[in-house]
Structure formats: C-alpha cells, structure tokens
Amino acid sequence: MTDLSTKPLAMWLRLPKLSAAGSICGLWLLIIVIAGFAGPAILGIDPNGVDLLARLRPPVGFGGTVDHLLGTDQLGRDILIRICHAVRVSLLLALFGTLIGAAIGISTGFLAAHFGGVVDDVISTLIDFQAAMPFLILAIAAVATLGSNIAVLLVLVSVFGWERYARLSRGLALSYLNNGYVVAAQTYGAGWGTIYSRHILLNILAILIVNITLTFPEILMLETTLSFLGLGVQPPHASLGSMMNYGRDQLFKAWWISILPGLAIFLTTLAVSTIGDILSNRLSIDRR
C-alpha cells in the first residue's frame, strides 16, 4: 500500500517517541556503531601493530599520553583502536544472531499456531526444551565438539533466541487468529500469506521489536562470555570478550586492558535494555 509509506515509520509501527534517557542511550549506540565501522578508518592505526616500546601504557587521566588515549596492552597495541575493531565483530555477531533467530522463531511460531496438532506439539516441545536448558553450557559443549570459529559462533547466537520469538509469535498468532479481522479476511478470500504478513506480523511487529531489545543484549553477552572464556572469537580476530580474557593476567598491573572493553559491553547492553524498557513502557507491553 502506497499510502502507508507516506506516514512516518514510527507511527506506522505505532512506536512511541523516546525520552531524554532514551536519547542518551541512542546517542551512545550511535557513537559505538560509528566507532566500530568508521573508527579504524579515521584513526588509521593498525590494531595489531606491536610497539614494544609503548607497552602497558595507562589511559589518559591515569598517567597516559594522548597518542594512546585508552592506553596500550602488553604488546604495546593501542586499546582504543582494538576496541573499535572488537566492537564491530561483537555487534555484527549479535545483530545477525538476533535477526536470524527472530526469523527462525517467528516462522516456526506461526507454523505451530497455524497447523496445531502434531506440528504444534513438536515445536512446543523444542521450545520448552531449549527454554529449560542452560544455553551457555550447551554452547560451551558445542564449542568443545565443533571447535571455535566465527561460523560456529554465528550458529550458536542465532539458535539462542529463536525459542523466545517462537513462543511469543505462536501465542500472539493464536490470539490474533481469533480476531475478527483475521476471520473476516478468510471469508473474503485473503490467502494465508496475506493474513500472516499483513494482518498479523505487522500488528505484532512493535511487540517483536521490544523483544529484540531484550534478546540483543543477551546475545551480545553470550558471545562476549564465550570469548572471555577463550571459547569464542579467536586471534587474529578480537571481540570485546576475548580482549578482556587477554588482559586478565595483567589485571593487577594494567586494569585498563580488561576493564575498558568490559565497560563498552556494559554500556551497550545497558543502552539497548533501557531503550527497550522505555518502548515497552510506552506500549504497555509486559516484558519479563
């Protein structure tokens, strides 16, 4: 429909405006995205550039100098530029994980709601099974058998969230299928494709987006945790988690190597969660 596109997207999705706190969070996310994607180009320093003369330099304000704003690690590599690179890896993994998980979850949820019976039983059992399992432990076991590389990580972070979207979209679809306009759409000949995409998906999109703000931080946390344990992103790539792992040995000597990437994770998850809170409050969606 052409006339839908003439309205602002937010209004179309029925998403409310954000408050001051939300704007600050949005600003931080903008900064971190720019740092991750444009930072390396702007700073123009090699993230793996070893400088043994400038080892373990503290950040500015803790006795450091401006040529290494956030200090250096035990090989003299610049922390700021390494964080920029790591942010890109972490954000991309979390983002793709969220989107793939959402896509799988929403489709299986709709399938379960639509066909019911045995299909529903199978999907619901899978949902319950995954919800009951400590996913981090399963992920660790999977890494143990499949090895740790970016592809395995991507599969893991994608599988992580599907169960929530499946549960949510199954429940919502079941209730929307009883809504008058969905029943009426069947009587005037709308196909199931139209009904699910136009009348159900678009109406529950706001709820799904709020749920994304809930899963995204957890996925980011899952990836960084695995990397922190040495089971995630492997050198020469670096994620925020693996940077922290690398700096752990030097914690008492050079805290900034571990703590600064950790703060980047914390502020990012906090920003996304806060935006999610504000959205769900405005939309009065109960998220747990």
């Binding site: 008058g180 306009y181 109406n203």
Partner: peptide, 11 residues
Amino acid sequence: FQDARSALDPR
C-alpha cells in the same frame, strides 16, 4: 462480529 474493535485491523 460482536467485538467490532477487534474485528478491524488497528493499523
């Protein structure tokens, strides 16, 4: 339907 509000797509 009885409930006209849920019988129309809110969007």
